[in-house]
Simulated scan of single mutants.
Amino acid sequence: MKRAWRQTIRLGELSKGPVKLRLEPDAETRALIAREVGLESLPALTADITVHPWLDGAEILGQFDAVVEQICGVSLEPFEQALSADIEFRVVPAGSPNAPAESEAATVELEFDPDEPDPPDVLADEEIDLSAYLIEQLALEMDPFPRKPGATFDYVPDTTDLSPFAALKKLKGEGE
């Protein structure tokens, strides 16, 4: 899949220590990202990320702030909402001894502990696409059922008798 925006760093750049970056796409790029993740618009998106050497790969840590425009699931009106979240990913190069074994996951039942960190992602090459991790975290933080503040669902059920016998009662007449 072709990404709307790419901001990359190579693993070799971490040999001198952590690298700090500020990611801030322009308006045109934010419009492409909004379309990619299913938003009406993305008025603001910034992230401060630090990439640290980790084992034979890298650890990506940081935080993002965004303003997203979504459609309310109740009123169908667009509304803006501020989002902020931490970013934490680990990556290792292909062939790394620290990479999760694919064959092990297919044959052995794994236990899931939500408090444990996720296993590291395996890179296709020496390049880490930081923008992809930012967009992934943004998509995870978005409300899949957005509701505009103050929007209420006012459903009043029909109080008439809807049973099939009610229709027969009408045909027979009320007095019989």
Rank of each mutant, 00 (worst) to 15 (best):
D121W: 02
P43C: 11
V51R: 01
D115Q: 10
G38M: 04
R35W: 10
S131D: 03
T29D: 00
I135Y: 01
F112I: 13
I87F: 03
V19T: 02
N98A: 14
R6S: 15
A106V: 14
V68P: 05
P144H: 04
P53I: 08
L21C: 08
E141W: 05
K172W: 07
D65E: 15
R35K: 14
E109W: 10
P120Y: 04
S163G: 11
A27Y: 01
E69T: 14
L21K: 11
P78S: 03
L130W: 00
Y155W: 13
A82G: 09
F145S: 05
D125P: 00
T159G: 12
P25S: 07
Y155E: 05
E116M: 12
A44W: 03
R30K: 12
L162K: 14
R30Q: 04
I135H: 03
R35F: 02
T8G: 09
D26R: 02
G95I: 04
V156H: 13
L11F: 09
I9T: 11
Y133H: 01
E176G: 08
I87G: 00
I49M: 07
L162M: 11
T152C: 08
V37Q: 00
L76D: 02
Q63W: 10
T159M: 10
P157E: 15
K172M: 06
A58W: 03
K169Y: 09
G57N: 06
M142N: 07
A166N: 03
E69W: 00
T107W: 08
L14R: 00
P157Q: 11
S103D: 15
A139W: 01
A105R: 12
D115P: 02
A94E: 14
A31L: 10
P114W: 10
L168D: 03
A166C: 06
L55E: 11
L168P: 02
V51F: 01
G62D: 04
L11K: 04
Q70Y: 02
A105D: 01
M142G: 05
M142E: 10
L83W: 02
I60P: 09
T8W: 01
E126T: 12
V91F: 06
P149L: 01
Q137K: 12
H52T: 10
M1D: 11
L39A: 02
A31Y: 05
P114H: 06
F112V: 13
A4K: 04
S96V: 09
E111I: 12
E109Y: 10
G173E: 03
P25N: 07
G175K: 13
V122W: 07
S131W: 03
R10I: 10
P78I: 05
D115C: 00
E174A: 12
D143R: 02
R147F: 06
D86V: 12
L42V: 04
A124E: 15
P18K: 09
K16D: 15
P100K: 00
L138N: 03
K172Q: 10
A101N: 15
E104Y: 12
L162E: 12
E126M: 05
P120Q: 05
E176K: 13
A151E: 06
T50Y: 03
A34N: 07
R35P: 03
P120K: 05
A31E: 15
M1K: 08
S103T: 13
I9L: 15
F165S: 11
S15G: 10
